[in-house]
């Protein structure tokens, strides 16, 4: 780890200005990922601007029925919040599916969105990684790629996004509030994560600070977050599914909102599966067809071909469960 400066400003404007003033400055939230990466030499900011003292730690209702979660709210606190639990249970479950109790106590909501991939090659500075060192190649492509992407990846990078929370937020159509040197803006979560350039994880510019996540009014339909991983806790998803399923009294799917985790460099909104479901009967056959529609584009690697059947059967099982809850 290299020496670095540390500041802890009292307001967001000062934090933004400070980071913007130095090209290799970084915001520090809970530090649960950034500090690891600094120890590993993956990143070496010369200035850390600690944002955990900013007044961004509240969860409050939005006009129009939504909910705003401040960026410095700890994961554990968001998961335990009565409004989050009552109105967005899928989000609470996704939060609790991530990391460990100790990590959730430290990690912030804003930092969670910005955590980096856990690809072993990205995290090892002695190995090739285009995301860490552009042009150096992708060691994962022909290496250990059990955990890597099957959707939306390229030869340049096959890393996956590690967050559980962001998968739920994607299915919830959350909006990310950002404050930057040039003012404030709101970014739909679908647009936060960019795709094609391994070097660039998000659409945020240097100095832009996530201040809050806005959740729209929840749909009046059952939802679920299901995570499949290699051990019972404290592991990243092999496959995860966030889903909301709205079925009418006649047993026809009115609407579905589905996102996958563990399959792509970003939370993967399963638009093709959603389209296949709308207007279809809420049956196991429809659910499998919808999963196949999304996974037809899958390009598995030698080490992760299992993710295709795993994603298919997990999504079908989640939808079956939601349909059964709705029928009750």
């Amino acid at each position: 780890m290299n020496p670095f400066d540390y500041e802890r400003p009292a307001d967001a404007g000062a934090a933004v200005a400070t980071v913007a003033s130095r090209a290799d400055a970084a915001f520090l939230g809970g530090g649960t990922n950034l500090v690891d990466l600094m120890k590993l030499g993956v990143t070496g900011p010369s200035l850390l601007v600690d944002v955990t003292g900013l007044p961004l730690d509240r969860i409050e209702p939005l006009p129009g029925g939504g909910l705003r979660i401040g960026a410095t709210v700890r994961n554990a606190d968001a998961a335990a919040d009565p409004e989050v639990r009552r109105r967005y249970p899928m989000l609470a479950r996704a939060l609790l599916a991530g990391a460990s109790g100790q990590v959730r106590n430290m990690a912030t909501i804003g930092g969670n969105l910005l955590q980096r991939t856990r690809c072993v090659y990205f995290q090892d500075v002695t190995l090739a990684c285009n995301k860490r060192e552009p042009g150096s190649g992708c060691a994962a492509l022909h290496g250990y790629n059990r955990h890597h992407a099957i959707l939306g990846a390229s030869e340049r990078c096959v890393a996956v996004h590690p967050s559980d929370m962001a998968v739920a937020l994607t299915a919830l159509d959350a909006v990310v509030q950002v404050q930057g040197p040039d003012g404030e803006r709101a970014i739909p979560i679908a647009d936060l994560y960019t795709g094609d350039d391994p070097e660039r994880d998000t659409a945020l510019a240097h100095g832009e600070l996530i201040t809050a996540i806005d959740l729209p009014e929840p749909a009046a339909a059952p939802s679920a977050y299901r995570k499949v991983r290699d051990r019972a806790s404290y592991a990243f998803a092999l496959v995860s599914v966030a889903a909301v399923l709205d079925v009418d009294a006649g047993g026809t799917v009115r609407d579905a909102r589905i996102a996958f985790g563990g399959l792509a460099h970003r939370p993967w909104r399963a638009s093709r599966a959603e389209a296949a479901l709308r207007g279809a009967p809420a049956t196991g056959a429809s659910f499998r067809t919808a999963a196949d529609a999304e996974l037809a584009a899958a390009r598995p690697l030698p080490g992760n071909a299992f993710k295709v059947p795993m994603a298919r059967s997990t999504l079908a099982a989640v939808l079956r469960g939601l349909a059964a809850r709705e029928a009750r």
Partner: peptide, 30 residues
Amino acid sequence: ALHEHGVMDPGPGQVVTRDLADYHIAAHAD
């Protein structure tokens, strides 16, 4: 039985599962 799997990548000639996030041992919940 369920978790431990040291992965040697023949490319660099290195074990790439080099921390407790990648070299899984049973968690309490297991």
